[in-house]
């Protein structure tokens, strides 16, 4: 479900791209340091954004660090910080429960890869659960709720997106300051809503084939495996509403050195990613970027 949110490169110079890259590498190193090598595979862009947002207000430093992917040259990675730790702990807990979900959803044979992965992450999860017990309980509660709504074939986009949005919103509780907690709660809620709806649009074809629940099919009563144009524009409108809520919350934060990176996310790339997903070019684009290394960060 994760990995959609990335800055738009056209608004950033090399130094700013490097800054985002250092947060990405910093989170990877934090996952590795706290939870062992395999936890690095849980790294994704959305949690990088969460780490950046949680770190606002405290100056961040970075240094060149080597890793398996960059054994010789190393790369610039953000130094350990409470924000990176918070993001790492929460991504391990969330990944674990999503894995459990996959195990429950698949048959005995098809669930074998997930069971093996669960074996790999058991230790990491136990450690993370001890560090953030409240978040662990909240994730279980919200994912259970999500499962119930999906089983009931919920026909409201908002009701279907609520559990996932509320789950991301829980991450705000890592913030000690009351005002900032309110801002983060609102920002993360709409980030969760946006991710859930984008994911539903992205998976629409696959869900049509497999017969899995898809909130867009139930809300707009769509037959067939493509999204009609009028559904795309209605969905675009409701995605825009969430982006505006995120931008409104973000404007109340002092982004400091992260202003250019975060501006490009909240004022540009979220719209662009939405457009790419709705017009069906997102996955292709991702592959093209990876193959040609067009814009490596």
């Amino acid at each position: 479900m994760f990995g959609y949110v990335r800055p738009a490169a056209q608004h950033l110079d090399e130094a700013e791209r490097q800054r985002f890259r250092s947060a990405y590498c910093g989170l990877c190193h934090t996952l590795g340091r706290r939870y062992g090598f395999f936890a690095r595979w849980l790294l994704n862009f959305d949690f990088t954004l969460l780490a950046v947002l949680l770190s606002l207000g405290t100056p961040t430093t970075s240094r060149c660090q080597r890793c398996v992917a960059h054994p010789c040259r190393g790369c610039d990675a953000m130094n350990a910080s409470p924000a990176l730790d918070a993001a790492a702990d929460r991504s391990v807990v969330l990944a674990w429960w999503q894995l459990q979900d996959h195990i429950a959803d698949h048959g005995v044979w098809k669930s074998i890869p997930y069971r093996l992965a669960a074996l790999l992450y058991r230790g990491a999860y136990r450690k993370a659960r001890a560090l953030v017990p409240d978040f662990d309980a909240a994730v279980q509660r919200h994912l259970r709720e999500l499962d119930e709504r999906e089983r009931a074939r919920c026909a409201s986009l908002d009701a279907a997106a609520e559990p996932f949005a509320a789950l991301l919103s829980e991450i705000a509780s890592a913030e000690p300051d009351e005002t900032r907690r309110r801002i983060f709660a609102q920002l993360f809620y709409h980030l969760g809503r946006w991710i859930y709806l984008i994911d539903a649009a992205d998976d629409f074809k696959a869900d049509a084939k497999s017969g899995n629940y898809n909130p867009l099919r139930c809300r707009y009563e769509i037959e067939g495996d493509t999204l009609p144009d009028e559904v795309k524009s209605a969905l675009g409108e409701t995605l825009d509403a969430s982006i505006r809520q995120m931008a409104g919350a973000y404007a109340l934060l002092n982004a400091g050195e992260w202003t250019a990176v975060l501006d490009s996310i909240f004022y540009d790339s979220l719209y662009g990613i939405g457009k790419a997903v709705l017009s069906g070019v997102y996955r292709k684009q991702k592959r093209r970027i990876r193959r040609t290394k067009e814009e490596p960060i």
Binding site: R6, P7, A8, A9, Q10, L12, R17, F20, R21, Y24, C25, F45, A69, C75, S269, G272, I273, K275, A276, Q285, K286, I289, R290, K293, E294, E295, P296, I297
Partner: peptide
């Protein structure tokens, strides 16, 4: 539109 790709 050009997205910052991951380090992959």
């Amino acid at each position: 539109m050009r997205l910052c790709a991951g380090l992959a």
